[in-house]
Amino acid sequence: MQQLDGIYFDGHTSVRHEVKLMLYAPGVVRVTGRGVERIEPMSQIVVSEAMGGAPRLFTFADSAVCEVPPQPGVDAFLSAAGHAESLMSRVQSRWSFAIASAVLLVAVLIVGYRVGLPWAASAIAARLPASVVTALSDQTLQILEQIVLEPSTLPVERRERIAVGFARLTGPDEALVAYQVLFRASPHIGPNALALPSGTIIVTDELVRLTQNDDEILAVLAHELGHVQERHGLRLMVESSIVGFVLAWYVGEVSSIAAGVSAALLQAHYSRDYERAADTYAARLLEANRMSPALLADMLEKLEASHGELATADGDEEFSRYLSSHPATRERIAVLRGRQ
């Protein structure tokens, strides 16, 4: 009859008893050694999971415990005693499950990142109360005003012309969301426009000065309005929170810097999608108002050219070449021109 070596502790004292475990009857175990004699049905014993080289612990109802160190015949003994290994116990002991877990993990991460996260982000963004959205945007605007934005030096007539022109646009399918256009000078940011979730659209003087054609500015504003309409800013915020949380959890104590960097890289993918979506919105808005989507393409080219000049002026030619041939922007321009 097969038997196992074990070490028995009665749960009341630390006295160590060397014992033998044997099958007494089907489903009944006998533990015997100097000063120990127990016969217990397996139903009264909790057997710990298999965990590599760790001992198996047989815990009795009165909290006595018998440690069974790794030895040949443990599995055979347990199955003869009628012990069914728990699912997790089996999962954790096999490499096939480890590899399957790794594959599952990668698959879940990819699907979650591609499908689950954008869905969750737009659902959450759509449910954020307006007061929260306003508070967030006001806070951001305040910080921007303090750090990078200065009062606009554009002629008041030009600003008004653009604002009135934009106010005349009507939505492609429904009413436009509430928005507010702010003109600001910003040598730091350069030619650019940005939208805050509350509908505040900031255009820099530097961008307006890139062109004499106000319609091109309207095209840029239409693009920014697309971001507001589809709540891109909020979605990005929700996404970055979730990505950051998961990464921080996985990377853990290894390095918070690594977590930050990888979060920023993963983020880039979403923001490209959002740019395309905002382009589409702008094109539809422009078309609904009998204007050409090519206006936005013209403006993108001018923006790119100006970035290139800025970079060259800094003496950083490698950088400028990279920017001017940036495939994402070229692609966007081609798509906008292709709509005609």
Binding site: M51, G52, G53, A54, M88, V91, Q92, S93, R94, W95, F97, A98, S101, A102, L104, L105, V108, L109, G112, V246, Y250
Partner: peptide, 29 residues
């Protein structure tokens, strides 16, 4: 200490996969 990296790797990877699949609930287990 009698543990090995190979043994713990199997427990660890299963832990991580199940934690993600259950949206964090498994993390207690």
């Amino acid at each position: 200490f009698t543990g090995t990296g190979r043994d713990y790797f199997r427990i660890w990877i299963v832990n991580i996969a199940l934690t993600i699949v259950t949206l964090g609930i498994y993390s207690a287990w």
